[in-house]
């Protein structure tokens, strides 16, 4: 098991070399000049040339790559041409915000989706099942940004139960930064007020984001539960008198969950890279917004930083999912 984890972590090295190469090459063969954009329309040729030199963009590509890659190892993720801020410092602020959003969304999706899928399966073709199926179909079909707007309209504008947008009120004192995730940090600091405040801000964007994985998890769970219920061992368990609740919640649940687990892993990656719509609507200062601004101005250091960190998290999440398989299914052996 330990050896398996170490081997998987070692395998990350070539994955990241490949990833940096790919991202670096793609961003440099794209047409357009970020320095020209950053310098503004009035900039003279000399100014642009000196900026280009300053950012090292006059050097040959392999040399630039080497510079970038060796910088990465020392924690220097490059510098934004536009804001002149180091990318690593930006990511330290924006990445936790998005991670918090994505994890909250996926936890919501699991906590609601798994029971909903189970309920849907055990009431198959009766009204709770119909209701759940209609709702999940509707939520797959509804675009996230649209739901986000509807949520804002209802819960923030009409009912005024939740804050309209943002992560934390500017006038309040945020908890000391440990993880960068406000909910976790306020819990760590024991600041209950900050925790509820950040949860209030988190709820709507997380809900908007969780909709699509929630629907998928529900449908997956329904299908795999129905499949497991047909298995011989369920009949044996019933024939020997085990209660329906014990059979469903203990024996069937674990069997059905293992196929849903794959989807959860994939969705975390998908949410990370697709967070921009929800972040835009809720003005959530995450990497989605950050990357979009950088892409528009062809500021490729931030783009590369975002891509690499999403890749890194995605690979780690899927390693964790693979390990979870082993916990759920004893037949999965790691060698």
């Amino acid at each position: 098991m330990i050896r398996f984890i170490i081997r998987r972590l070692v395998l990350l090295v070539p994955v990241f070399i490949g990833l940096t190469l790919l991202v670096f090459t793609i961003s440099h063969i794209l047409p357009g000049d970020p320095v020209k954009l950053a310098a503004g329309p009035q900039a003279s040729a000399e100014e642009i040339a000196s900026l280009t030199r300053e950012f090292g963009m006059d050097r040959p590509l392999p040399q630039q790559y080497w510079h970038y890659a060796s910088g990465l190892l020392q924690g220097d993720w490059g510098q934004s041409v536009l804001t002149r801020r180091p990318v690593a410092a930006d990511l330290k602020i924006y990445l936790p915000a998005t991670l918090e959003l994505v994890f909250a969304a996926i936890i919501l999706a699991i906590v609601i989706g798994i029971p909903a899928g189970l309920l849907s399966a055990i009431t198959a073709n009766r009204w709770p099942d119909y209701l759940i199926r209609i709702l999940s179909l509707a939520s797959i079909a509804m675009p996230r940004f649209f739901l986000a707007l509807v949520l804002q309209l209802v819960f923030a504008m009409s009912l005024a139960w939740l804050p309209l947008n943002g992560r934390f009120p500017i006038i309040d004192l945020p908890p000391p930064t440990v993880t960068g995730m406000l909910t976790l940090d306020s819990l760590l600091a024991g600041d209950w007020l900050a925790f509820t405040t950040s949860c209030e801000h988190l709820l709507m964007p997380a809900l908007a984001m969780s909709l699509s994985p929630l629907a998928t998890i529900t449908r997956m769970m329904r299908a795999s539960t129905l499949d497991v219920l047909q298995q011989d061992f369920v009949l044996t368990e019933r024939a020997l008198g085990l209660s329906q609740s014990l059979i469903i919640l203990k024996y069937v649940l674990r069997n059905a969950f293992s196929s849903t687990l794959t989807v959860i892993g994939l969705y975390i990656g998908w949410l990370l890279s697709g967070s921009v719509l929800v972040e835009t609507v809720f003005d959530w200062p995450g990497i989605g917004l950050y990357a979009t601004k950088a892409i528009v101005t062809q500021d490729f250091m931030p783009v590369m930083g975002v891509t690499l960190s999403i890749g890194f998290i995605f690979v780690l999440v899927n390693l964790a999912i693979d390990l979870l398989y082993g916990v759920i299914n004893p037949k999965v052996r790691y060698q």
Partner: peptide
């Protein structure tokens, strides 16, 4: 029942 390979829950 008939098939002992499928009548025990494989995950427990």
């Amino acid at each position: 029942f008939q098939d002992p390979t499928t009548n025990l829950n494989p995950l427990f």
